[in-house]
Nucleic acid binder design. Structure first.
Lengths: 214, 214, 214, 214
DNA sequence: TATGAATGAGGATTCATTCAT
DNA sequence: TATGAATGAATCCTCATTCAT
């Protein structure tokens, strides 16, 4: 009995491994050639498996891509934490910086995935576009909610929190794109970037900020 | 001779017209179906010309796309004006708002082009990616230069103008994406958006801004 | 104007010709290799056209096959004439023999098509099966109707005209199969076969047929 | 030793059983989906064995099919008995009816097999076609031989016994196809069909069989 | 210049068969 | 013997591009 279980278990593990092997190869192929330019041949060559094997683990090229995408989105989702405004909590800006650091580090440690996300994922098909939109929407909502709570608590001012949230989300997106995807091959200074980003959105660039600038 | 010139001229004009006709059709096809999903058949059907005719005016599918892209980038470039810090000039924030309004209006009036730019253009091929990167670089540089001049003039504070410029560029990008591409089918409130954006990046969201809030 | 018509007309004719060329090649390929064993490559090689060209004229392998089938069924349909029982008409058996001769000759002159029909066409797909069933049904109905009219006119006796019609249809089918498809490469004695068939079904094989056997 | 024999015997029995299990599953799969549409996956799923196991018992998909075919042909062969013309024997037509009843009942009780035979078997490959031709030839020969003996005995008249035998064989074939394969899901009236068939081929349909034949 | 039929390389996917366990 | 993951040749079909008219 335990023998059977052992076998079954081993088989399952092997299956997982194969799947991961193909996913990993696909990750690199997609990141370097792009979704459309990557053929099934490229994928199976990179994975070192036969054409048919690919189809034992994924239904189609689109299917692998979605699997990769989900992986990345899950990583990002795990990085985001709500802001704690209670008395004993850490200062709000420190909390924001910490969340941003996690996001940037997640992106950096999945740089290929992030590259795919930013450079290939849009406009592929309805399903993928839908997932991306949903993800963007969730992030935007997170930013806006944090903003609104800050305003309600009297900590923040935002005449139009929807536009501001869009600006902040766009900033984060661009920071990731620029410092992780484009220039991030030597690691990134996530702490510094996160601080600068938070600082900027909190205080702006205007020099004449009353008597007590930072 | 002048007869010949006339003929030549008329032929040239006709040629331009045909080219424009194909470009216009391509614009709508690309905007609605996306680059990859749009076939040559779609393009020539929409343009009302024969397949062969298409190739008399453009070298390839990619070629039309690049032509459209150049058109859009030129439009954007035309919208951007340097900031004038001289004494008689308009207030800096008013100048920034004016530039942003021009950019947003340009995007809104070429919404199909903007859609293509934001949803399809990335990851197509090296040439297109290069042009887009160059354009993004130019915009980023414009923002950063304005920032640096403001800092030098004592008007602005920016500890890390590169990061801040990235944030600002990302904000603009996202504002266009959200309010023009995604939601812009009923026209946009460019003035309001531009003001809110400039305001945000100048002052940030922190409530406690000394004695002189907005 | 007539020039345009001429061109259009010529184009149409050329199109017809190409289509016929592909159909003809397909006929021979299907007859010799069978439907399933025949690949698109076989078809285009035999037709001497490029793969893509094939798809300009037919939607799929199945589509060509159906076109061939329709051709044959139309030929057979054209061979069948109803029996004329009016006074001045030719003797019934002569009419039946004439119809059979036409059917056999039609089969013989489209031997490849008939071969396909008898050897490949069944079990391919729902559409094809449906057409064949409809055709068989029509033939069966024709035989049965003729039989019933003969019975009504007092010329024939048939206890169970449905079974008898089935027997007659089966006989015709087998005669075609045997003498046209299997052995028909040197032409067939359609007159003799038709006579023997009609004679058999009219009188049977029993010797003891009253006082005046044939 | 006898222990070894026992083991060997048991193993052989088990083997037979496994083989039968696969054959039976294949029978139903082929009958419902057809030869080409039935995949190895369908076969092994229906049989409840692993893909590899299938190949321990049969060399190929074609091989199972041939095995099924042989089974059916053997059944039919067993149904056919020669006609006994000796004095004490039953009347010839009764003997013919009895043989036909056996054939029809055999077909009805192996309806799936018969369906395969009539709808899928032709045109698959040379081996199968050869077996079918041989079988058809044997049946034809049986009919013709009976006919010739009847003629020799003065009981029957047949100007061209080859054509007549073809007609009779075709009739039987079509009766089976129509009443067993197509409509036979509720059992068949084999006695009635057999009688009508024999009657028809003995006497034909001509009404005027008394004193004044045509 | 305009046409659109023709091209054929290249794509995704299937499935009968093998073989290591 | 039984398994089922792996194989890869072969299939159908698409579509950007060419070229004879």
């Amino acid at each position: 009995m335990s023998e059977v279980d052992g076998r079954t278990e081993r088989a399952r593990a092997q299956r997982e491994e194969r799947r991961a092997q193909i996913l990993d190869a696909a990750l690199h192929v997609f990141a370097s050639k792009g979704y459309h330019a990557a053929s099934i041949t490229d994928l199976v060559d990179a994975a070192g498996v036969a054409r048919g094997t690919f189809y034992l683990y994924f239904e189609s090229k689109n299917d692998v891509f979605v699997a990769l995408l989900d992986e990345l989105l899950a990583t990002f989702r795990g990085s985001v934490k709500g802001v704690d405004l209670s008395d004993g909590a850490a200062p709000v800006d420190a909390q924001l910086v910490a969340t941003l650091v996690r996001i940037l580090d997640a992106a950096a440690s999945s740089r290929s995935l992030a590259t795919i996300l930013f450079r290939q994922a849009v406009g592929l098909d309805a399903e993928i576009d839908g997932r991306l939109s949903a993800f963007e929407g969730a992030l935007h909502f997170y930013v806006k909610a944090a903003l609104d709570r800050g305003v309600a608590a009297g900590l923040l001012l935002a005449h139009d929190s929807d536009v501001v949230a869009t600006c902040i989300y766009g900033s984060i997106r661009q920071i990731i794109y620029r410092y992780v995807v484009v220039e991030g091959d030597g690691g990134i200074a996530s702490e510094r970037l996160a601080r600068a980003l938070v600082e900027h959105h909190l205080r702006g660039v205007l020099a004449d900020r009353g008597h007590a600038p930072t």
